[in-house]
Design a protein around this nucleic acid. Structure first.
Length: 438
RNA sequence: UCCUCGGUAGCUCAGCCGGUUAGAGCACCUGACUGUUAAUCAGGGGGUCGCUGGUUCAAGUCCAGCCCGGGGAGCCA
């Protein structure tokens, strides 16, 4: 690109390179070019910061997302990523807007925890001990009492347990912060560091929980449609281009904006786990033996089953409730006769998973077990150490109350609203196994 | 962690059954031309073929191990 001052001028001011920062002075005039209303007739150009085209990795052409991921420090400069991160902002802001509007208090659960009983997955250790020569006990084990916190401590996998404490005081709270899982998960839907929103409300049951979750998703979608129309338009076109490359069968029926509006305008399907199993048993892929994993009451739903329910059978977001107790966490409320989701096929809990097309589980939540004796029995049965959890059990000892909540994965939601395919593309600096650069 | 595909120029890729000096498009540099917007035309520079070892007269190509990435699965948000 060359800059020529004045009309028909030939005086070259030198090359202007891609990504150079310039300050231009000139006159804004009506443009003769197509696709733009105005343009600047430049009288003066000042190069604030040049950019060496032989060294600058981003070129004015279409790059692969994999390549841009490896240049995560520069990828915001592309139109795709700047659109994604503006939308991520709108979603984040909308979360506060939604909960604030409903009288929820933004509650800061701790990032560092010394309890190992949250049961949501492998945890990262936090320590200031010398990794090569830690202080040892007489029996050769590491002396954690000498560590910074005086106990073995880790990064949180969930703020839920603390949010429960707060909900039983403030009534309605939500957390919104980073969460860490040391799982060796290598998928387009998993991060080692991700952001999670966890509302928790006293006197709320499973139905209220479902209403809250659906309301949140729809509020966020509406907000993005309203405030990020240009960026959605861009991503919509981008997705349409990508779809053209795919074989007919794999193409999605709706464009991005069309899909967002569809989800906004239709109620989420609400079914029990038991009904879901029945639907799967009657499904074509089951009868043609196309499912890789078995379908029978008592086993957890696999990705292929969730995808069938959401993408083939209902073709919209689905909330599945009343899972078998054995596949869910200890703090979920046991269903008894008369409770929603109860069945004589086996013990179930008041769990709920919100499943979205293309992504799968975007929200996981439940009504919590508020009865001390039932909760303690569950903890014993599942090997959760009650002594470490005394503070959690105290909520059930001193004025317990029915309550419920859920966890929404921010990045998974942003994945859905941007139409992107890999979760590493909707967080600025993804942390995954073997990767924490930038 | 498992299955699968891949790693060749700055980027996207081709490179046959192992065989001479490893190619193309784009990008970049020089020049020409130009109300352009994926401009065009001519010329030019640019390579540790992921790493290590092995087989062979000869390895980008075959074999083994390792590293990294994509897609799928598990774990989950």
């Amino acid at each position: 690109m060359r800059y020529r001052p004045g009309e028909g001028g030939r005086r070259h001011a030198g090359p202007l390179h891609h990504s150079a920062a310039v300050r231009c002075t000139g006159t804004i005039v009506e443009s003769q070019g197509s696709g733009q209303r105005v343009e600047m007739q430049v009288q003066q150009v000042e190069v604030l910061g040049d950019s060496d085209p032989n060294a600058y990795p981003i070129q004015p052409k279409k790059h692969s997302l994999e390549f841009l991921r490896e240049n995560a420090h520069l990828r915001f400069r592309t139109n795709t990523y700047s659109a994604i991160f503006r939308i991520r902002h709108q979603v984040s802001f909308g979360i506060h807007e939604y909960f604030n509007g409903k009288g929820y208090n933004y509650f800061h659960s701790p990032i560092i925890t010394a309890s190992d009983a949250e049961g949501a997955g492998e945890m990262f250790r936090v320590s200031t001990l010398d990794a090569k020569n830690p202080p040892l006990n007489d029996d050769g084990s590491v002396n954690w009492a000498a560590d910074f916190f005086g106990a073995e401590s880790r990064l949180t996998v969930s703020g839920q347990l603390q949010a429960e404490l707060a909900a039983l005081a403030l009534g309605k709270v939500y957390t919104f912060g980073p969460t860490f899982r040391a799982e060796n998960s290598n998928t387009a839907r998993h991060l080692a560091e991700f952001w999670m929103i966890e509302p928790e409300a006293a006197f709320m049951d499973l139905h209220g929980n479902m209403d809250l979750a659906e309301g949140l998703c729809k509020h966020l979608i509406a907000r993005v449609l309203q405030h990020s129309a240009d960026d959605l338009e861009f991503l919509d076109k981008r997705m349409a281009e990508e779809e053209k490359q795919k074989p007919q069968q794999q193409r999605s029926e709706m464009g991005l904006i069309e899909r967002l509006k569809f989800v906004l305008e239709h109620p989420f399907e609400r079914i029990t786990y038991t009904d879901a199993i029945d639907i799967l048993l009657r499904s074509k892929p089951y009868q043609k033996k196309q499912f890789q994993y078995p379908v029978e009451w008592g086993v957890d739903l696999q990705s292929e089953h969730e995808r069938y329910l959401v993408e083939k059978h209902f073709k919209k977001p689905v909330i599945v409730t009343g899972y078998p107790a054995q596949v869910k966490a200890f703090y979920m409320r046991m269903n008894g006769p008369g409770d929603f989701g109860y069945t004589d096929k086996g013990p179930t809990v008041a769990a709920m998973d919100v499943l979205f097309p293309g992504i799968g589980e975007i929200i996981g939540g439940s009504q919590r077990e508020e009865r001390l004796d039932v909760l303690e029995a569950r903890m014993d049965a599942m090997g959760v150490p009650k002594d470490q959890m005394w503070w959690f059990l105290d909520t059930r000892r001193f004025g317990t109350v029915p309550h419920a909540g859920f966890g929404l994965g921010l990045e998974r939601f942003v994945l859905f609203v941007t139409g992107m395919g890999n979760i590493r593309d909707v967080i600025p600096f993804p942390r995954t196994p073997k990767s924490a650069e930038f």
